[in-house]
Design a protein around this nucleic acid. Structure first.
Lengths: 354, 354
DNA sequence: CGTATTCCTGGAATCGATACCAGAAGTGAG
DNA sequence: CTCACTTCTGGTATCGATTCCAGGAATACG
């Protein structure tokens, strides 16, 4: 049943255009075999005789052949590449996370396409679009906006979020226990006798901030302490001024709870600058551990998130989806540690907050 | 001269396999036009009537069409993607650099394929191979080994190195002035009256370490001070012990010059732990600025590299090569600043080292 | 009105790897 | 030696977008 097969000259032997890389067909010609055979050798070598295999491998070697992933993924619908969208890789939290994710991805043979959203919805959209056009197999996302839902649903690749959930949507998500961590932190401050605690929340629109503020608030309420709205600072711009004001004016605060890395460091600077005694006149507690937190004077008590754990888990969930087909749903919340140092009273051993 | 063109049914209209994304041909059919026309609309729309254009754009909208970059780059030999290989993104220096590079790349419409080498030659090779197979348009590399030269030469895409040069090969390179920075640093220490300076060099095999050690050594020699080999510590493992020994034994040192971020922080910790008075009994000077360096007690004098400047320059060189075809060669060395704080004598204004 | 020019358009070959199919070659049993 | 197999091989359609080419439509110009 041979139907008319017109002989089409596909790979013009005569005119060799200067190609940057040799293609599979070049290997085939050099080894004197067909294209299919070379492909078989590359992919495991089932149904190829030892002799042929050796000849092909020699040709691959000689030409320095490198398979073209673009062509491969065009046919096979797998790019073996995952996407990662974070607000900013310069942020220590996300840079450590990105490093961990790259490590997992590499172990699975997939490089990472890195994109930064800067917490801007429009930027996030651009970046996701760009990744979709590159047909990534899966995406790890720190979402900053719910507006890209339709984009992602249409794309239909596995998606795992970390650090923040996708607003209003049950994608697989890996979080630190923001509420619990903040609550434990504030309870610790209260237990230490601090009563008027300034909560420096950074960007109040962010999920993590909101959760931590909530934990803080609940701890205050449950301890029966009065709640003061003016003791929650929800933006970066006015944070330093607010802290100074509350340290110097009347109704002075006696503790500061900082909800993020850089805020803690900034608060520490200001406390030093004003010559405030820590922890005796004002207590300081930060969210996120940082290099030197244990060396400052006094060492800073912090809530420590398992950054690598969170990122690694997210990556593993993604590859489970890709390789074992088990689509992850639901939220994984990882425990955080309260690391007692000296900035809100005497030092104790670290304790895992459950 | 129409030669026999057999009618081949390429895009089987009948059986529609469930494709994750609509293809260009789907848009074409929906709009009732040919494939070429859709392609023209997507790419600028030269030679397309307004009516057709509108119809096609409508179809694109309705289907949520996203061009497939793999197919595009297969034909066009441009992936619009660049590669970035750094030792580790978790390292603050490289994470800031990666952020800056991503920002430049994004402005040029190219996402970044991120790979970590962990300073391992074999790992570096794997990562570069992987990037080559993805046919990146260009590569930004922090080389850790010269063994991959042939690989990169064959690949023949533009390559820019930063932080370190490619061993023995004149690829385009952007560096901080390691020699000059270290020399100025040590001169400053000497000028302040310190005479017996411990140089903590981290991994002595790294280019940056070697250059900085050289600058340090030359400064010592030119000042007429005696040179002691035992005052150069060339590995991480023994660094802490060495420092402790030299602080406590006989022939005590009177200053420490740390060649990298984390080493400086570590040295500071040890100095505090031993209760050593800084700067009165021992001076401390670090390479690379870091958060809190200005807040420690005393604030740490450091050599500050223009990290963002270095990374941005590297990225710009790459895109100049890609877009304007001007192949960059040669080394760009950026100036570094000596930031006078208090850890080796009284504070002065910062000075740019020329 | 005919011809030259420009503007638009559809269709096929192409990029490089894979998957499938048909058939050749080799093996073993009867 | 034949038949039924398994093993091995070459050839080509296919993925999706671009880039040609040929030719139709529309306009301009003599």
């Amino acid at each position: 049943m041979l139907h008319c097969r017109p002989k089409i000259l596909r790979y013009t032997e005569g005119v060799k255009k200067a190609r940057p890389f040799p293609a599979l067909i070049d290997v085939a010609r050099r080894a004197g075999v067909g294209a299919g055979t070379v492909s078989r050798v590359i992919n495991g070598g089932q149904y190829v005789s030892k002799r042929t295999m050796a000849r092909v491998q020699e040709a691959i070697e000689e030409l320095g052949y490198q398979p073209n992933v673009a062509a491969r993924s065009l046919k096979g619908r797998r790019t073996k590449t995952i996407g990662l969208v974070v607000p900013s890789v310069a942020d220590p939290f996300f840079s450590v996370a990105a490093g961990a994710i790259e490590a997992v991805a590499r172990d699975h043979g997939s490089p990472v396409l890195l994109a930064q959203s800067e917490n801007l919805p429009s930027r996030e959209r651009e970046q996701i679009t760009s990744l979709i056009q590159r047909r990534i197999d899966g995406l790890i996302l720190v979402p900053c906006d719910g507006g890209n839902l339709s984009l992602l649903q249409q794309a239909a690749f596995p998606l795992v979020c970390f650090d923040r959930p996708f607003p209003g949507q049950p994608f697989a998500t890996v979080l630190g226990d923001n509420y619990g961590g903040a609550r434990a932190a504030t309870e610790h401050l209260i237990h230490r006798g601090y009563k008027r605690i300034l909560c420096m929340a950074g960007d109040g629109k962010l999920f993590t901030s909101q959760q931590r503020v909530r934990g803080h608030r609940d701890a205050i309420r449950d301890a029966g302490l009065p709640y003061f709205a003016e003791l929650e600072v929800q933006d970066y711009a006015s944070a330093s001024d607010a802290l100074r004001r509350h340290l110097l004016g009347k109704d002075r605060i006696d503790a500061v709870f900082c909800i993020k890395n850089l805020i803690t460091m900034n608060a520490y600077k200001i406390l030093r600058e004003l010559g405030v005694e820590v922890p005796s006149s004002v207590g300081l507690l930060g969210y996120d551990d940082f290099e030197l937190a244990d060396t400052l004077d006094p060492p800073i008590t912090v809530v420590r998130q398992p950054v690598v754990g969170i990122a690694t888990r997210a990556a593993q969930l993604l590859f489970d989806a890709l390789e074992k087909g088990k689509h992850p749903k639901g939220t994984t919340t990882l425990k955080v540690d309260l690391v007692y140092r000296g900035s809100c009273g005497e030092m104790l051993a670290s304790r895992r907050y459950t």
